[in-house]
Amino acid sequence: MKKECLLFMALVSGCSSQVQRPATPQLALNTQHVALGHQPRINSIVIHYTVADERRSLELLTGQKVSSHYLIAQYPAWHRTLPEVYQLVPEDQAAWHAGISAWRGTYNLNKTSIGIELVNRGYTSSATQETCQVYPPSQIQALIQLVSGIARRYSIEPENIIGHSDIAPLRKQDPGPCFPWQQLASRGLGAWPNPALVKTLLAGRATATPVSNEVVIPLLRRYGYVIDEWDNPEQQQQVIKAFQMHFQPENISGKADQLTLARLQALLLQYPEAKE
């Protein structure tokens, strides 16, 4: 009886081991048809200043209300050459650094950009004085290395390496007129008007001659600044000032002149126009 039970169990076990479960069907993806309506998930880099020291900046940027992908300290520690670079948010996740924003046909740049904060006291203006804190060379060197890697990873075009004031000109003014945009552009990390082209476009006109908003505002729209039709002259002046802080730090009055116009025209000739 015992032998018969063992034989029965062996037969049952053998049968069960031979039962074939249905294979999971393989999903076939057809990639022959590519939609025209698409863009990279990350297509811009937005640069900010913190208006706080390093300790306070870390507190603010690791809280629940605001964040950035990276924070660059102002000065190196005594035993290092470059300042500390903190990664606070993974690049594949959105950081809350841009707020209500728009640039070159893209809105809500939190979803599509990498945010980089620089420890810096920032830019202040009053009726009698305007001041901004110069960025230390080592901090800019660290930024160049960081931005270079990000731009390479995501194939970010120079015209999409921008400041917070470019994407939110009515609310923000960072990284301010002391930020060395031309230095970054010389490394291919941002747009800058070609000086020879600007000179040609000026055609001998005095650079300080005023230019009306009616001439400049449509060109700013074509380059990428989002300006609503109902914006009043004061708001338009803020957008012009944002452009000047980036491309004409010699004049950040918000009042366009011939140099403003020539540099804007040069940018439109050098880089693709914004999508509607």
Results as ranks from 00 to 15, higher is better:
R222K: 14
K275G: 13
L71Q: 09
D166G: 02
D257G: 11
R222P: 04
A10R: 13
V239Y: 01
E59V: 10
A262W: 02
A185L: 02
R205H: 04
L189R: 00
P158R: 06
F243R: 11
L220P: 01
A28D: 05
A52Y: 01
S17W: 15
T31Q: 07
P249G: 13
H164T: 07
R104Q: 00
P169D: 00
S17M: 14
M1E: 04
A10G: 07
M245G: 05
M245R: 07
S138F: 02
A196K: 13
L71P: 12
T24A: 15
I156G: 04
Q39I: 08
A98C: 10
I45C: 01
N110F: 00
G176V: 00
A151C: 05
H33S: 11
S113A: 12
V134I: 14
L219N: 04
W78Y: 12
A191V: 00
K2I: 12
I240K: 02
I42Q: 00
S44Y: 06
A266H: 01
E229R: 02
S68K: 14
I217W: 09
W192I: 05
G99T: 03
S44L: 08
E130A: 15
S68C: 11
R104H: 01
Q74P: 10
L146A: 12
T106C: 12
L36Q: 02
G224T: 00
S67P: 01
I116P: 00
I167M: 08
L29F: 15
L197N: 02
F179Y: 06
T200Y: 10
P25T: 13
I116N: 14
T31R: 15
W230P: 08
V147T: 04
M1Q: 04
K275P: 13
S138W: 11
